[in-house]
Design a protein around this nucleic acid. Structure first.
Lengths: 247, 247
DNA sequence: CTGGGGTTTTGATCTGGATCAAGGCCCGGC
DNA sequence: GCCGGGCCTTGATCCAGATCAAAACCCCAG
């Protein structure tokens, strides 16, 4: 879609920082995909790499909202919580995703690394200014924000109106669509990127309910976990589709 | 915040269309607040007034996504539905709000007028083009979209983790904050803009549960409905706050 | 091989809200 | 005034999923 692998050979040698961005593994999956190599150099100067280890909190709800970032690698959860500690995961972030809220001074969400994670972080104020200078990046961010909103709307339907069986089936099919690998015999192999507890946090259920729904699907021969609890094999996606789309 | 009430006296007489926009009652509450009078004329030519009566559907999920609009007056619900007819209201729209999804070809949400409503509708393609030409409008839309996303995240927490009592208290306090009028004796008067059924659709509950929670709050002397079911008087907002923010 | 912490599964019980079923209330039309 | 149709409330019952409790599993470290 975007031809951004080209590197001009006759321009002045780019700063080391800039080189780093040009070689970035997720260059064309992040918002940076929308800007030219030259402008990337400017943006590059604003960002810094940040390695976060699994379980570490990147942002606490309630803290000053000072930074935003591109996710280089790893996985994070974005969650909202009640004062007494109930947690709802409102989103998951993977390589290429944009992390952070803009235009507000206090973070309302807690972001936690699920795995060791690399970020490319920017001071929020700088990033907002940069947005104004790079219309294509702003447009891309608008498109992504709208897509997130759309996802959030689907999840409201799930959380408000669907039962546990439907939510779990939704989740598995979603994963399969996004990252599923087809196996030899028409089965689909899916790596579940999160624990049962996180699935529960994401789907608005408890750990026990998740487990029971999964074992039910397993005994119904719809899915299987031959190689560990994280490696789900979808044996019969038609059944999952039927659960998701009831008569 | 924006000085947009000025009308140039030495310019050529504006077209009738343009005049209509300059006099628009919600001019500085909509996205149009971000553009100059001259540019408003251009946008004006793209839009047309559209009156929708209560109960009418403006957009069906699944239909071609051909239009978007500013809400001039009235109220609408935006809802997502399952194939078998369960409905979750994902948002409410009032005067000044922007209606519509951008950048997608098929509408995924159904929009229905709750009251008689006036819209200022644009062909989506035209509006998207206009956005690219009016950076300040695009920025304002980005800010609003982010605000909607934030709202959606709060609602996911509600739908996924809060009980009926908390959801109802949340809803009432939200209304009070937005539209509440303080009465003589410190009480807050709130006009509930939707029916019990719509509250249920919004909060992910049933009509009966809404009713029971409200009568419980009433018998606890926290609220009252002296003048009809739509006119709620909050007698003791401290109790509502305590429900919303449990220990 | 053994022990111990974390995760997942399984079992037993409880409960908040859904569902099913009447009424009550209000308003407009006749 | 009386009837009819929306809403809204109230009551009785049921059940999906939460909660409480205990095994089972799964690694690694020692």
């Amino acid at each position: 879609m975007l031809s951004n692998t080209h590197i001009a050979v006759n321009s002045p040698p780019p700063a080391r920082e800039c080189q780093r961005c040009l070689n970035c593994a997720v260059r064309n999956k992040t918002l940076c995909a929308s800007i030219s190599d030259e402008r990337l150099a400017i943006l590059s100067a604003l960002g810094r790499r940040w390695r976060v280890s699994a379980g570490q909190v990147v942002t606490w709800a309630g803290d000053a909202n000072s930074h935003c970032a591109n996710v280089i690698s790893g996985a994070l959860k974005v969650s909202a919580s009640t004062a007494d500690g109930r947690e709802q995961i409102v989103g998951l972030l993977f390589a290429g995703d944009f992390l952070g809220q803009l235009f507000v001074n206090e973070a309302s969400l807690t972001v936690t690394a699920l795995t060791d994670t690399d970020l490319c972080a920017f001071p929020r104020a700088d990033f907002e200014r940069a947005l104004a200078s790079y219309p294509r990046m702003e447009r891309l961010l608008l498109e992504r924000t709208m897509a997130s909103l759309h996802e959030a709307q689907e999840r409201m339907l799930s959380l408000g109106r669907k039962d546990a069986r439907e939510r779990v089936a939704d989740f598995l099919l979603d994963l399969a669509r996004r990252t599923g690998m087809c196996g030899a015999a028409g089965e689909i192999r899916v790596l579940i990127p999160i624990s049962r507890g996180e699935m529960a946090g994401f789907l608005g259920l408890t750990i026990e309910t998740i487990s029971r729904q999964l074992t039910r699907l397993k005994s119904d021969r719809v899915i299987d976990f031959s190689r560990g609890e994280r490696e789900c094999v979808i044996l019969n996606s038609a059944v999952l589709e039927a659960i998701v789309n009831p008569a």
